[in-house]
Every structure is written in structure tokens, then in C-alpha cells.
Amino acid sequence: MKNKIIELVDIKRNFSVGSEVVRALRGVSFTIHEGDFVTIMGTSGSGKSTLLNVLGCLDDSSSGEYYLDGVLVRNMSKNERAVLRNRKIGFVFQSYNLLAKTTAIENVELPLMYNSSICTKDRRVRAIAALTRVGLADRLQHKSNQMSGGQMQRVAIARALVNDPAVILADEATGNLDTRTSFEILALLQRLHGEGKTIIFVTHNPEIAEFSNRCIVLKDGLVDSDVFNSDVRSAAEVLASLPILSDD
């Protein structure tokens, strides 16, 4: 039996807007095991973003239990959650969120900067290793404004990898990229998944689900469907079959 990385038990999240209470999550329960590649889908208003915030330890649930890599997250203080994010979670955002005018290597080092147990030398070694893993070994000193969207997203993935997290949370990670680059990123994520990484990919694009081995669909704050995909498509193959544009 594989380790449980994420275990949600009846997670509810309510927001008060004025006198009204908006129930964004109405009792979500599921378990994600080590080495899973899960897509979480849903239309806007389905509670997808709220779930992502809870999963990412950015937000606390109103009720229910959440275990991340065996640690109970609920009722943790802000600082405790910050430390947990630093050690257990790697975020990949839609708009990359790299630091401006900063080199790839410095961007990747960022999470380690907030971990005082890692020394300067170690930090550099790990950052170089992470960038090599995403295929950017020759772009270490490039600044964020000197890179293409795909390269920036790969730097962001390297940044998510660098602290060796329990789970990588990708929030619409291909949303800002063209088709070809999207498949490149998907192929990279599939490769990392192949290497044993646990990945959660939040998206509203149903096509992405075909590349993951499990798909959870949210609707009105509840799990609408949770299906395992036995026929996972290979992003690398799709990429190879794409016509190469002459001006590329």
C-alpha cells in the first residue's frame, strides 16, 4: 500500500459575505497516494480555487480534517502553515510568478532561502540540480525577462521541485502557454510523475485529464466524480506528432 500524501475528510469552507454565508466547499473527502498524478477540474464557482487554497495550506478549512503527509493541518497557526508549505508543497502558478530581474537560479533558490537549515552552498547545488531536471541547465544565469513563457514555467517547476516536496500543486500551469509549449510542460510533469512525484493539477481544461491517472471533478462544492484513468495519454507522443511551424 502506497503512503497517503493527502487525506481530506469532510472538508467544509464557508465565507461570510456581509450577512450571507457562502458555502464554497460543502464536505469534500478524498485521499491521494504517493506517486499519483491527479487533475482537479470544475467550472468556475465549483469550489476549485478554494480547494486548492486548502490543499496548499494557504487557507484553513471551516471544518473537517486535512492530513498532509501525515500531518494534521487544521488549526495550525499562520507561521506553522508557512513552514509546512516550505517543506511539503511546491506551487506552480498560471502566471509563473517569477521574481522580476532575477536569474533562474536565484528564483529556484527562493524556497530554500526560507529554510535556515540549508546552507548557501547546498542551496546552490540543489537549485542547479532542479534546473537540470527541468532541462534548463544552460539557462542558469538567465534573468526572468530574458526567457520565453515555457522556460519561465519550467523555472517555476524547478522552484517547486527544489525543496523535494511531498506534493506539487499546479494551478492552471499551462493556461498561459501555447499548445506546443503546453504539451512540453505536460510532458515534463509526466516525466516527474514517472520519477515518483505526486502531482495535483488544477484546471478547467478537460483535455488535461487524459494525461493524468486520476480525475476529480468538483461541482457546487462537492466531489461530482472521481475516476481513475487507465488509458493515460503520453504528452511526449502528442508533442512529437504536432506539426512544426516554419516560423518556430
Partner: peptide, 16 residues
């Protein structure tokens, strides 16, 4: 603000 958000998401505490 966005940079601050990013720093927080990768583990920066309020005090940092």
C-alpha cells in the same frame, strides 16, 4: 504584492 504572495506561498512567514 504579487512577489509578497509568492514568497508567502513558498514558505515566508509574516516576520520574514
Amino acid at each position: 504584492t504579487k512577489e509578497i504572495g509568492l514568497r508567502m506561498s513558498v514558505g515566508a512567514k509574516g516576520i520574514d
